[in-house]
Design a protein around this nucleic acid. Structure first.
Lengths: 344, 344
DNA sequence: ATGAAAGCGCTAACAC
DNA sequence: GTGTTAGCGCTTTCAT
């Protein structure tokens, strides 16, 4: 038989469908003998419970919908991986959707996930998104949702984010404490939150430490490898190189690596480079990048933990705002001037 | 109202639920006026169709279950990304599960996906798996399934795989044609298919080209960075270095890079390195790795295309075996001895 | 063009 | 301990 239902088992055994249903769920109503018999024939007949039917009347799906902008970016794949880990452990399944940074796809995805009656949603907004409409619907339907990495403020959803500015300030403090004063910044687009906050952190740290800001050394461009590459070339034409570069992210740092090497400069001997990034990738760099580490797994775990707590009503819905700690990690791309024994 | 159903709309408008159902699906039975009216109030009331209910009686879920060993490995995240791309385009949704290379988790995942009545399954077997039982169930239930990358032979499921041995032979031929004769191989575990086939390809290519195989230069170990690192150290103690190393994969190649650099050797001037891998990662290596490129996106697309064709009965179930072409790409980590103009 | 009846597979509530 | 009834939200006949 191709598709065995409880009623088929019931007919086979001359009992009612309810008896079968209860027996299979190990309900105390049913005698051990009966359970054994039913379990056995269920197995023999190749019965597989229809979760769809079960979901329909329990109004619970044990399914979580995830919406991310992109899965090629390993930052997101690490996040999703950690979410699936936690979900599996807690008997939830995950429907994964990708918006490709398009707000219309994102909207479609969320609508479908609502339609599938997921128990909750984990969303990282696309860069385009500014329309809150779907999210209002989610609110109205009282579906638990947690934003991660990119979030709407002023909605009653929890969010898990990095706190960029203090992270930058802290890192710069370390660098300055080490004796560096000639510091450049390869900044991201100032239109973006990320670009702006990291830049502000940079300026604030220098100012507070009474270091003159050299505007020639703040080069604003994008977030990709080529941007770092070109920024370095531009910097190199100044005839006045800094000792060290603060890159807005790891791809930009890598672009800078490339241009520096092509210019015959050694890292870190001739020029130091550090920046935002995360471990798993920047470990592969040559030399390994000194980073302000943003751990995607921490973020993923925090977000799904929050969500499942909300789903299971262990916590009041919405409103939490959790900052994931950023850690400054000394590695090979910056020369230590002082001889600390402690590695931070 | 929090959770609006068709019957709520019907009551509101004093029509039957069937009318509403039909109108919402744009069924020809219903008059334009009625459709408009129903559509409007549906929107106004915040109606979201319950896909679970729809799935229950259509016995179609437009959902595909994916089972992979790991998502941290970017090879798999690229595969999944391409699958989701194609799925979205064809109005399918994807439930993603990760087995962590454990056959019991894999089994559990597949059973649950069957329970959720996915329309089809895409599976990359865990390294442990040798029990076919769940897959027999899938066969029996006539659920379309396509294996990718790692597959069971002798089942009536289609599979999409790389053909390692010819890929290795082809690459070695290029290398040998270029004038290399002193060639080492950092091999993977010979217990694994991958390790064995690549090793066989290596030996065959050398033999066919009448090059003496130096067994000291075939160093068998694992598939990780550290394995490449240690293999190189071992090689370097021989006092008899090859000109070039064929690494079983990109991580092993990177380990070899590291050890080579630490030993003061320049790549490619002092020693060449090439190996299996894929573009997106090996592009970041310094120098860029000359690779036998295995394109995960091609594999993902081919697999899901096959699956959806089977689901929609555009093709007969099972039995296709598709090989994804491997491409040899010259980059910076191997010195070209001949002066080709053409880049292969 | 609209609606009544029946059913998808399962389970909760209540009898017997 | 086992079974009956009813219903989850939707759709597919088949009448009207």
């Amino acid at each position: 038989m191709v598709n065995v239902r409880q009623s088929d088992i019931a007919k086979q055994l001359n009992v009612s469908r309810v008896t079968v249903s209860k027996a299979l769920r190990d309900h105390p109503d049913i005698s051990q003998a009966m359970k054994k018999k039913i379990g056995l024939t269920a197995r023999k007949m190749g019965y597989v419970p229809n979760l769809i039917a079960r979901q329909l009347n329990s109004r619970r799906t044990f399914t979580i919908g995830i919406v991310i902008p992109d899965l090629e970016n390993s930052f997101f794949s690490y996040i999703v991986d950690s979410m699936i880990d936690y979900a599996t452990e807690h008997n939830y399944y995950v429907i994964l959707t990708v918006s490709r940074e398009k707000s219309n796809i994102e909207k479609q995805n969320i609508e479908n996930l609502i339609g599938m009656r997921v128990d909750g949603l984990l969303v990282c907004l696309s860069q385009e998104t500014n329309d809150k409409q779907v999210f209002k619907t989610v609110e109205k339907m009282k579906i638990p949702l947690v934003f991660f990495d990119r979030a709407f403020e002023n909605m009653k959803f929890s969010r898990v984010v990095f706190n960029d500015k203090p992270g930058a300030v802290n890192a710069l403090n370390h660098i300055i404490l080490e004796g560096y004063t000639r510091i450049a910044h390869f900044a991201g687009y100032s239109k973006t939150n990320i670009g702006r906050e990291r830049n502000e952190g940079f300026r604030e740290a220098l100012t507070k430490n009474k270091i003159q800001i050299n505007n020639d050394w703040i080069i604003e461009s994008g977030f990709e490898l080529k941007d770092g590459y070109e920024s370095f070339k531009k910097l190199n034409t100044l005839g006045n190189l800094p000792e060290i570069i603060f890159a807005v992210n790891d791809r930009v740092a890598l672009g800078a690596y490339k241009a520096a090497k092509e210019a015959g400069l050694r890292i870190p001997e001739d020029i130091g480079i550090f920046g935002y990034g995360f471990n798993e990738i920047t470990d592969f760099f040559d030399p390994q990048l000194t980073v302000i580490n943003q751990d995607p797994r921490k973020m993923g775990l925090e977000a799904i933990k929050l969500l499942i707590d909300e789903i299971e009503k262990k916590t009041r819905t919405g409103h939490s705002k959790i900052y994931i700690e950023e850690e400054f990690i000394w590695r090979k791309s910056v020369k230590r001037k002082l001889k600390y024994t402690k590695i931070m």
